[in-house]
Design a protein around this nucleic acid. Sequence first.
DNA 1: CGAAGTTACGGATGCCGTAATGATG
DNA 2: CATCATTACGGCATCCGTAACTTCG
Lengths: 334, 334
Amino acid sequence: MKLQQLRYLRAIARHQFNISKASQSLCVSQSAISKQIQLFEHELGLELFKRKGKQIIGMTTVGETILLKAEQALENVNDIQLLAEDKTHRRQSLSIATTHTQARYVLPNIVGRFVKQFPDVSLHIHQGNPIQVAAMLEHGDVDIAIATEALSDASAILAMPCYQWSRSVIVPNGHALSQLNTLSIAELIRYPIITYVQGFTGRYKIDEAFQQYDINPDIVLTAVDADVIKTYVRLGLGVGIIADMAVNPEQDKDLDVLSAKALFGVSTSHIAIKKDKYIKSYVFQFIELFAPHLRLSVVEQALLLSDSHSLSKLFSQFSIPFFQREGGEESNKV
Amino acid sequence: MKLQQLRYLRAIARHQFNISKASQSLCVSQSAISKQIQLFEHELGLELFKRKGKQIIGMTTVGETILLKAEQALENVNDIQLLAEDKTHRRQSLSIATTHTQARYVLPNIVGRFVKQFPDVSLHIHQGNPIQVAAMLEHGDVDIAIATEALSDASAILAMPCYQWSRSVIVPNGHALSQLNTLSIAELIRYPIITYVQGFTGRYKIDEAFQQYDINPDIVLTAVDADVIKTYVRLGLGVGIIADMAVNPEQDKDLDVLSAKALFGVSTSHIAIKKDKYIKSYVFQFIELFAPHLRLSVVEQALLLSDSHSLSKLFSQFSIPFFQREGGEESNKV
DNA sequence: CGAAGTTACGGATGCCGTAATGATG
DNA sequence: CATCATTACGGCATCCGTAACTTCG
């Protein structure tokens, strides 16, 4: 049995049982994988894959079990490499999986400070929807995941609250809504609404608020991207509901910004790591930079706790800070 | 990185950092190991072993961490092989680590029934002192460990109670002690005592009983082996205290056997498996054969529990049976 | 000087890639 | 006929063993 064979097995499973795709992802020929899998199956004396002629259509039950063990073994092996790279300071890299909102409005400031502090660490930001972000973390493809939506209920993932935020309603300057003393749901729904796509940036909180009053708002347009929302608000297509973080006082002078905290409540964004993966030293540094209350000692404590109950107890000791923009110029750098 | 390199690393650590010993245990040349370790260290870019000139005298701290990960990886790999062998019914083997008392007096009957039921499974009984038995199980060298003493407090080990037993005092026929109505500690210590070596076969229970009365018995001889004890009792050197299981009514007709249950209480023997190791199907069968109350479903339940509290709660549902000899002829077969 | 580890070299094995061949829809 | 898996073959890397060398107690 070779580690390569385990890697090939995993790659095939991760590419819809398509050897060609798997071979491309590993930069080897199809034949190499095909042959090694055959050798592996022969050595074990059993079939790992269900075949229909020459086509692979799935895994056998033993195959599934063996895949699980193989993934664990590869994870341990990967940990050894990460550990060595961390200790020797070679090939230092930090991979972050996150959603658009974080990448565009929250991370720039943090990332700017991080690269100044760790100039030798190469940074990789993988953007995706919340489900993809969670998957990237679970697969061990990234060191850190940052998102507002549930990152994962898997016990192998540790998600920690890093900041709270609320929403703002944005309208063109001088819009009727700007004249009101207090914004209400009743007033809001008199206009077409532009906001996030479902599943993104706490959209469900907005839906909940409307449902509570049994109101069916006229949502004319949705986007994953606050910039897109702003653009259509500027065109007068409707009023926008976006996350606080996405409001840029300097660039958005042509828009009136009304806090909608009272209407939609607050959301909490989380930063998550994979518990059983080796955690590089500067991952802890990044976390502390991002959320100062998540000091090394706190994260280490959290890593030892397994049940969600004692975890939330741990974090309830801290007041999770609200998001706040730090210096307009800084935030657009990098 | 190669699996071999991890195996070599582990072997060196398990042989007091002696490459020559490690190479012998793996049936390869010293140079093979020496070179692979060097290549591995070079690939990682750090030293795994502390050296003094050419002598290896220990591991570095990173080395320790990497060894841990390597052992986990190898365990997963080993599981894959075990699983395949189990499913394909090739190279079926069951390794049991146990102490002398179990191997000599308890196991023969069980083993006899097991080999009848699984004629294709080759059986290996590794005998050792309780500490060695626990180590063999923790290293994954054996599938099952059976002993009375604490097998391990490690959470990776699941120890289950299988039967209870008490002690008997043995004396030559017609000895003064046989004439008594009830045996007491006070009567007992009037004679020299022959019993087990410390750390074996519940010896500590005997010591406890004497200490309770603040008595210093005259223990003239200790052995790991009840047969040895019997021999010296026959020679008239003293009275013997041995485990119930070791009494053979047929062969021991020249000895009078007096129950000492009231004096020394009862002990419970345990059967243990390594939780995260792959458990072959016939391991479950063996366990049930050995302790009928430990049915497959019970063991599976126990495997899911992590804390000792809920475990003891689970087992408190069953009345752990007392040991009883089953057919004198049977027990000496095999 | 003996025990233990490292270095040197030759042989065998094994892994991969290219290219041809065989299935499948 | 296009896609995908398997088979065939040659080149290159690598892993091992024997044996000589080095270092420490």
